[in-house]
Design a protein around this nucleic acid. Sequence first.
DNA 1: TTTATAATTGCAACCAGGTGCAATAACAAT
DNA 2: ATTGTTATTGCACCTGGTTGCAATTATAAA
Lengths: 137, 137
Amino acid sequence: MSCVSTLKAKGLKLTPQRMMIVDIIHDAKEHLTADEIIRHIQANMPGVNKSTVYRTLSLLEQYGCVYKSELSEELIYHHDEVGHHHHLMCSRCGNIIKCDEDLFIPLKNLLMEKYGFDANFKHIVMSGFCEKCKNNN
Amino acid sequence: MSCVSTLKAKGLKLTPQRMMIVDIIHDAKEHLTADEIIRHIQANMPGVNKSTVYRTLSLLEQYGCVYKSELSEELIYHHDEVGHHHHLMCSRCGNIIKCDEDLFIPLKNLLMEKYGFDANFKHIVMSGFCEKCKNNN
DNA sequence: TTTATAATTGCAACCAGGTGCAATAACAAT
DNA sequence: ATTGTTATTGCACCTGGTTGCAATTATAAA
């Protein structure tokens, strides 16, 4: 079900601002920060307020139309189809290790089995200590 | 190694503000929000600035003396020994399911094996859709 | 097409947390 | 005990994100 029909089915209004935000996320090749989305929309529709954007994003997230994740401290928004990956961030040195996403599959399956919970494993950032910092306390 | 000797070993200064913040976290039975820590310290040492608190917390986190985690949108700080648990938060309805921490052990071990990464699995919040919301799109 | 109504917007004010900088204080060396 | 160095503090300001509210607008019903 497309974003637009999902919203419609819920009795939510298809305002020009919303349509534009949906389009921006759909068209994006990569994930976007909220700020990038705000700049994009204000280029086309000057005067659109940032609170409108944030409210729309959280609405779309609630209805499964976009995914919000965090990437080294900053929140990013992305559409389902966009490629995703996981990160391990060191609390000491701040370095980020890219992480094979397959490692998370067993956990995802387990959460589904035990709790019926459909975890968002599109972008994960785990914090902890990297090899170097761990040994160099 | 205690927090105090860790700081000392790194050539960091043991200011009264820092000592007090360390004490507060040590004495806490539960995890604390940054705000609670700020209120605590300002009760004993009026005039201590919130930026000092935030800077001290991130310093302590870097050196493994406290753990920062997120609990349904708010950041919490806690000492190693404090009991911990995981949560599954629904992006639609906001409900939080408590989650058995053992489920994360295989993943933790895998990350250690493959990347030498010591993941902080003290408090995890996973987002996704709960059983009810998942089926009620 | 007009009207009613409920959802949505923009605004302004707010919140948690972070940052650059000059003043201060902890600690080491004398 | 005094001094010098360097880390740390408090301050003022900034940032991303949120909220209450009055004005506006999409949509359904008449």
